[in-house]
């Protein structure tokens, strides 16, 4: 009698934790670059799996590139600090929401399935602007 609620509780936990699911994979990096996850700094080796909330940081000689599970592609330029503040994707329905915050530096984006799924499902925030991405390729630059 006691086991059943525990089993249900565990299942609910597994379903309710999409925040810990892989959202993207690092493809390449060079120079000074790391992924900030809470208080950890992770080396962006090819294949590193990213989670929602991760911040991409590069120094003046640093670069990083990654591909998200909805096929969105990022290239991060030097001197950048960029957070993937929100990423939710339902693979079966090909819908989701995606918010990236470019605090500093440069980011090239080739948008994927989330941007196509609903109007402004993909957003990019800079210190003075909120952008809604409607399916395209673009570069956002935020000088220091």
């Amino acid at each position: 009698m006691v086991r059943i609620p525990i089993a249900i509780g565990l299942t609910a936990l597994m379903i309710a934790s999409p925040a810990f699911a892989e959202i993207a994979r690092v493809k390449q990096s060079s120079g000074t670059a790391f992924v900030q996850r809470n208080d950890q700094q992770l080396k962006p080796a090819p294949g590193l799996q990213l989670l929602a909330g991760d911040r991409l940081v590069t120094g003046k000689d640093g670069r990083m590139s990654l591909t998200f599970v909805d096929n969105t592609r990022f290239a991060v330029g030097p001197n950048s600090s960029i957070a993937v503040s929100e990423f939710q994707y339902d693979k079966t329905r090909q819908k989701g929401s995606f918010v990236t915050q470019v605090d500093r530096g440069s980011l090239a984006v080739s948008s994927g399935k989330i941007a196509k799924s609903d109007r402004d499902a993909m957003k990019v925030r800079t210190p003075n602007t909120l952008l809604g991405v409607r399916g395209t390729k673009f570069i956002v630059e935020v000088p220091e």
């Binding site: 470019v102 800079t126 210190p127 003075n128 602007t129 952008l131 399916g135 395209t136 570069i139």
Partner: peptide, 24 residues
């Protein structure tokens, strides 16, 4: 210098758009 956006066609040559939802 201020922030800027460069808008380009995608790899298939299709041109999408970017909406400015909030400015300042």
């Amino acid at each position: 210098a201020t922030s800027s956006l460069v808008l380009l066609p995608d790899d298939e040559g299709h041109q999408g758009s970017v909406a400015v939802l909030e400015a300042d």
